[in-house]
């Protein structure tokens, strides 16, 4: 079974401010704040006057506030941020550019919200920052486990020991987890940290 090198695995090309955008909408989680801060250092602060920043996470709040963006809003948790993002996108006008940064699980969930609003995934700017932990769907029980750091891991829903593959679904915002010892139950290797 192919585990790595699968074409569906997302590629995060990194932030680059779109000079032609009328409005910039940022959704940033944790270390994802640094993706925006680094752009400001690189291209200056001009775009911030037409920028809205949605942010979740304890670190970097003060640095973001100091940017003086048009709107800065901090969410207590990711689900709260995603609700707000949904409404922002419903209200968004032509010329709005969406930027997502943080862990893969966060980018994936925010992108799922955007896809549901009819935004083409290729138009969304992404940069992976922070932990390499993954969001994984168990292909057997369909339960999703967030923040998976080990290979294999135990499904938090059905308890099977799952191998995390690079196969990725944008629709589910999750990697695929497949039972690692189905052919010889009990033969699963011990978990090792692979996505720190």
């Amino acid at each position: 079974m192919l585990v790595q090198g699968i074409k569906s695995r997302p590629v995060y090309t990194g932030f680059a401010i779109d000079e032609n955008a009328q409005r910039h909408l940022f959704a940033l989680e944790g270390e994802g704040a640094r993706a925006l801060l680094d752009q400001v250092k690189k291209v200056g602060k001009e775009f911030l006057a037409v920028s809205e920043i949605l942010h979740v996470g304890e670190a970097h709040g003060k640095e973001l506030a100091a940017l003086g963006a048009d709107i800065l809003w901090s969410a207590p948790t990711t689900p709260v941020l995603l609700n707000r993002l949904r409404q922002n996108l419903i209200n968004a006008r032509m010329g709005t550019r969406l930027y997502l940064s943080g862990t893969e699980g966060f980018i994936g969930q925010a992108m799922k919200v955007a896809l549901e609003q009819g935004i083409d995934f290729g138009s969304i700017v992404t940069e992976h920052r922070g932990s390499e932990a993954r969001r994984v769907q168990c292909v057997h029980c369909k339960g999703i486990t967030d923040n998976v750091t080990t290979q294999p891991f135990t499904c938090s829903h059905c308890g099977l020991t799952l191998l995390v593959r690079d196969h990725y679904s944008r629709r589910l915002a999750a990697f695929q987890g497949v039972c690692i010892d189905a052919e010889e139950p009990g033969s699963a290797p011990p978990p090792e940290v692979r996505f720190p």
């Binding site: 079974m1 192919l2 569906s8 679904s169």
Partner: peptide, 11 residues
């Protein structure tokens, strides 16, 4: 479901 030709043949 929802993947393109290259993605669903990824594995």
């Amino acid at each position: 479901l929802g993947m393109n030709f290259m993605e669903w043949h990824g594995p």
